[in-house]
Design a protein around this nucleic acid. Structure first.
Lengths: 241, 241
DNA sequence: TTTATAAACGTAAAGATAACGGTTAATTTT
DNA sequence: AAAATTAACCGTTATCTTTACGTTTATAAA
């Protein structure tokens, strides 16, 4: 329909068009600092449609509800945490993507710290944290959504200090390096990583050490919030893959 | 709504949810090689709602129509050209973004060559190519859409040889440079640009010269399609700003 | 006391970037 | 006909960045 045809509708601008069910789906990433693995949270569907199959978590967009609010509600009700990192990924809208009624899905991805013993986030009978290299077959086009989210995360990690959302308050350089290694699925040279990441000034070294992976112990670091905010506003660019 | 609550709905999985009008809006970019300006195509609305105001072109997503097809239809019916570059930008879905009925809009952006004497692409009484630095006030959240599209284009231009979509078949290095200058709204050193862009191997030098901007004349170049496809699949990275 | 190993520190060669000077080919002006 | 003009084109160097890899340190376990 081009503009002129649309214009003819005039008073009937909205009328005669076909409303469609709209949902949000959420690709939830978490970094396991113990296993040093990037994970994605998936859900086993208990009932029809697609009972027994793995899927993302989502919900329908309700009357009067902003789409961003629909996405953050899903996340908040799942985790009990507000203000988690959440960003729109892409909208999936092939007419036949849902085998039941037509549903357009707006996919979001979120990043969260996976250290806390948050009961709701623990593996449950109906949800599981999958290694991003071992995602099972998913319902509908959710597999494509996860693929697209991982691709987006790679790009995001270059232009934003993503560790701030994925690492715990205190972390070792080893953990930070392994986060990048997981995202890019590639080895990073230890010494070069250290140099580059410390040169940003983003990290404050603490007195404390973590001895879980070595006899010597590795110093813990935190993000310098001021530097972090500065990079967020002025732009950030780092490359590891 | 978390998964368990959703599950309880079971057979009524789709039932009870609220269908919403969904539209696509298109941010159409064109590079004017004569003026050496990056332009965006906007439309003066002739009738209500918002008569007399500038807006993007769009359409409602029809029953059974894929969202990507809705977006490409708008573009094809406007230009008469198929296969133009078109990519999804972002979905805008605040409940109150449309002052009439609720409409969720999926924004797309497209890139096209602006040289051809295509009547439909010329400035008309109801449409106009605006310099990207001189975009007027737009209807609803269309101004934000254009802003977001320009931001996306900057990122896109780093990771893809965008000139292929925006420049004519034959072009000068001057024109290619000015395209990047327009995208990044910054001056680029002539000699460094030439070195960097030629080093990619993307360009084939022709015998022909263009004398419109100098006495000496500037050699024309074309994209090497093989190299271009290679970069598209293996990844591209160039920085000018 | 020795061994083992992650952590931490350092260096040098190669490559990329930024800044800028000089030459060329043609037209326009004198 | 000669001089002036100007975009186009070519080249150099200093500086920063990246890559690759060698060395030392602190501690627990053998």
């Amino acid at each position: 329909m081009n503009l002129k045809k649309t214009m003819v509708l005039s008073n009937t601008y909205y009328y005669g068009n076909h409303p469609i069910l709209v949902a949000v789906d959420n690709i939830i990433f978490g970094f396991d600092t113990v296993e040093e693995r990037l994970k994605v949270l998936l859900f086993k569907r208990l009932v029809e449609p697609y009972a027994g199959e793995w899927s993302l978590i989502g919900s329908f967009v309700q009357e009067g509800q902003n789409i961003d609010d629909a996405a953050s509600s899903v996340l908040e009700e799942l985790t009990g945490i507000t203000g988690l990192y959440l960003e729109q990924l892409k909208t999936y809208g092939n007419a036949d993507r849902d085998t039941g009624e037509r549903v357009i899905s707006i996919a979001y991805y979120s990043l969260l710290k996976l250290e806390e013993d948050n009961a709701q986030l623990r593996d449950q009978h109906d949800s599981f944290w999958f290694d991003i290299s071992e995602v099972p077959n998913l319902v509908l086009d959710h597999g494509q959504m996860v693929k697209d989210a991982i691709r987006k995360l790679k790009i995001k990690a270059r232009r934003s200090p993503i560790g701030f959302e994925l690492l715990p308050e205190k972390f070792t350089l080893r953990q930070f390096k392994s986060l990048y290694e997981q995202i890019y699925q590639a080895e990073i040279d230890d010494r070069n990583f250290r140099k580059k990441i410390l040169a940003t000034g983003l990290l404050d070294k603490l007195e404390e050490k973590d001895k879980t992976t070595s006899k010597k112990g590795a110093f813990l670091y935190t993000f310098n919030k001021e530097k972090y905010d500065e990079y967020l506003s002025r732009g950030f660019d780092i490359q590891f893959h």
